[in-house]
């Protein structure tokens, strides 16, 4: 049942992309997103797509796995496409009753949905190749400079790590409670919305109680092992930039330079 849901998209592997420093990947993804909005010609989009394909190949991800990440948002992408088709003003290509398709609309629609797809794919590429724990390590390390202005970097990262760690546990717990209440004749699939929401109480209440209990126990266990926050805490795996991180940064900067040139440097 619920335990069969796989959470987090991490796809374990031993590729160069997997071994990149999480900070490189996070910053790289942000940088790539900036570039997606910088691109304005078919050639620059082609370069961005080529980069993504190359990175996916380097990560040795099965083809199609990445494309699956579009699935939850395909309606929004389709809507973007269709809305632009029919609403943008410009040179009319096709007209029927109130529906008008313009050349500009088609171009704009394709451009916008392509941007969405690229944003989605590049962030999926990161989550596919970086385990959630490593990712939070990276976020913590990137947020550390902001500590001076009051961003609790370590605490945020610790909260994320704990939350991620307990998702499978809670799912298992939900599954067990559901089964127990079902064997007492609880019915979760009939009745109107109010009735159904009410029927969920026998699951939600025990789940809340056990979450509080777990939180309590965990806090106690952490305290017993002398956890006192991030101050002066060392880690087992220190994040260190490697040569490959430099190479990745170099490629991204190069791509950026080419895109800037394509946008502003080309004689009109």
């Amino acid at each position: 049942m619920l335990t069969e849901i796989t959470l987090g998209q991490y796809y374990p592997g031993e590729s160069v992309v997997h071994h990149l420093d999480p900070r490189t990947k996070i910053l790289g993804v942000l940088f790539y997103m900036v570039m997606v909005f910088l691109a304005n010609s078919p050639l620059s989009y082609g370069l961005l797509i080529a980069f993504l394909i190359a990175a996916t190949a380097l990560a040795k991800l099965p083809p199609g796995l990445l494309l699956k990440s579009i699935k939850p948002l395909w309606i929004i992408i389709l809507l973007t496409l269709v809305l632009h088709f029919f609403t943008d003003p410009g040179e009319v290509l096709w007209h029927w009753k109130v529906f008008t398709i313009t050349k500009e609309g088609i171009i704009m629609g394709i451009k916008m949905s392509l941007r969405l797809v690229l944003l989605l794919l590049v962030s999926s590429l990161m989550t596919f190749t970086t385990s959630p724990i490593v990712l939070t390590d990276g976020i913590e390390s990137l947020l550390r400079p902001f500590k001076r202005v009051g961003v609790p970097a370590h605490e945020l990262a610790m909260m994320m790590t704990i939350a991620l760690r307990f998702i499978p546990t809670l799912l298992e717990e939900t599954d067990r409670i559901m089964k127990a209440q079902m064997s007492r004749g609880a019915d979760f699939s009939s009745g109107n919305i109010v009735q159904r929401a009410k029927n969920l109480l026998p699951i939600l209440i025990p789940l809340f109680i056990s979450s509080f209990r777990r939180a309590d126990e965990l806090a106690l266990a952490m305290e017993a092992r002398c956890y006192h926050g991030g101050e002066g805490r060392t880690r087992m795996h220190e994040l260190v930039y490697q040569k490959r991180d430099g190479a990745a940064a170099f490629i991204l900067v190069l791509l950026f330079a080419v895109l800037v040139f394509l946008r502003w440097g080309m004689p009109a």
């Binding site: 067990r176 089964k179 127990a180 209440q181 064997s183 026998p202 209440i205 025990p206 056990s210």
Partner: peptide, 14 residues
């Protein structure tokens, strides 16, 4: 068939 799960007290809710 009645079923008493492991740690059944974790399912109390009312």
């Amino acid at each position: 068939v009645g079923m008493v799960f492991q740690y059944p007290e974790h399912q109390l809710f009312a």
